[in-house]
Design a protein around this nucleic acid. Structure first.
Lengths: 256, 256
DNA sequence: CTATATCGTTCATATATATGAACATCGTTC
DNA sequence: GAACGATGTTCATATATATGAACGATATAG
């Protein structure tokens, strides 16, 4: 383990979280010595991982990260393997499809194909969302061990976004039971108004859930009826992706 | 300057350039000690900047980079400032627009809005292309000092991609003269068959060209006539973006 | 099935690096 | 306009780190 590199990554994290910052800002926020931050930033800038605004002296993330981010995405097993299935779902229903992974008890959106319709869910690659109020998040949550779910709820709470957001551990437990039986999760305007999505889990070769995919679109078009038509397709895409990742499990009979 | 961080970035670069690699591969290719590579990778993995395949023991880029890449893109001055202009051009012509920066004597695509048509240029954020055969590349190249152009040609050569690619320094010099007079560059199927694009330069506050934007689409639809209709709009978008970035220059009269 | 080569990993120590303090510079405040 | 407080930057040295050599495990070859 290398402290210096860890510090550099801390700095990148800090830069990703807010407006351009100066050396002192960063040092204060991260509890690191100014001079350390300074020399690390110097290196990052020389590699275009960070960028220094010569007028303000503030630092922000650099162009090289765009390139690396793109390589990371196209290189990830999960992205490569999932791509054709995402495309299949996108073509069939003409709704936006998302691919997400579990990271730090949140979902991180790592791939997206947008619907071609005028009214559609927009691309959100690289952003994060809570587990308890998104279809992908709930699809992951439901297949974690109960103890893990409790731990996450304790840590993150159940913040409310809309009138439909699940806000009590009891309702969440009930929802988890439903998702485990069905094999898919529905986000019925629980994170954003007018947005209805259906998501299914993706398992790794060890058999644990670590990712999810979803179809999402405006509730006016994605009626509950249509969502239930989509669900089996999303589930089987998730299962097929899991298998190609080395998963050797079997779906429950209630899933199909 | 911090060697350790530089090494970590070298490793990321290596991981971005090819298939997943092991510790020894990386150490050999980069001329670094195995143990150094090992401990750096350990740190990168713990921060999800890199990923280790537990079965093969090989390393690849991690999900965190997708997030950072996204933040870099939305945070970059140039992206933020250019976004509305890219959108304007995209809506007006319904062709794919690209935003690129000059990096290492290549163009790096940093933003894109796709056309909504069936036949269209696809998104390429994060990839690179040569300067001498793309509209964005030529738009940048033409506004570099002559000495710089010569240096780049000496370093990169003029690799041929299609029948129309500019392959001799003389033809390139003539093309540069035209672009300087017009204020925009046309890629007439010089990089890919059936693809015709028009690009214009973007200048920074020091007055040097460092980025470019373009409209691109199938040659069958983007006739030379249509390209020439697009050109003034692309040029004025480039100039307006430059001004908002602090550029105080004046376009030549022949540009409008 | 043995021998060999190559792999990822560990560890002590020589070595390069992090950093506290001091510096010059800038913008603010009184 | 002087004093202050904040900034980004430099530098010597105490300190944490890079790394060569050695390890066991695994794959390949004979």
């Amino acid at each position: 383990m290398v402290n210096t590199v860890a510090k550099a990554l801390q700095i990148l994290d800090a830069l990703s979280e807010s407006q351009p910052q100066g050396v002192s800002d960063l040092a204060r926020n991260l509890g690191l010595p100014k001079s350390s931050v300074y020399s690390i930033l110097e290196t990052l800038v020389s590699e275009k991982i960070a960028e220094k605004n010569v007028q303000t002296g503030k630092y922000s993330l650099g162009v090289k990260l765009i390139e690396l981010g793109n390589c990371a995405q196209t290189g990830l097993d999960i992205c490569r393997i999932a791509a054709p299935f995402l495309q299949g779902l996108n073509v069939k229903f003409d709704e936006t499809v998302h691919l997400t992974v579990l990271d730090n008890n949140e979902v991180l959106y790592i791939d997206c194909i947008e619907s071609r319709r005028r009214l559609r869910t927009y691309s959100v690659i690289g952003v994060r969302a809570p587990l308890h109020c998104t279809s992908v998040g709930k699809a992951i949550l439901a297949f974690l061990p109960d103890a893990e779910i409790e731990k996450i709820v304790a840590e993150k709470g159940l913040p409310v976004f809309t009138a439909a957001t699940i806000a009590s551990p009891e309702r969440l437990a009930a929802e988890v039971a439903v998702i485990r039986r069905q094999g898919f999760a529905i986000d019925n305007m629980e994170h954003e108004e007018h947005l209805r999505c259906v998501g299914a889990p993706i398992f790794n070769s060890q058999g644990s859930v670590f990712a999810a995919l979803s179809l999402s679109g405006p509730a006016e078009r994605n009626t509950m009826e249509r969502i239930l038509e989509m669900a089996p397709e999303v589930v089987s895409a998730g299962l097929e992706i899991s298998r190609r990742l080395g998963w050797r499990g079997e779906p429950q009979s209630s899933w199909r």
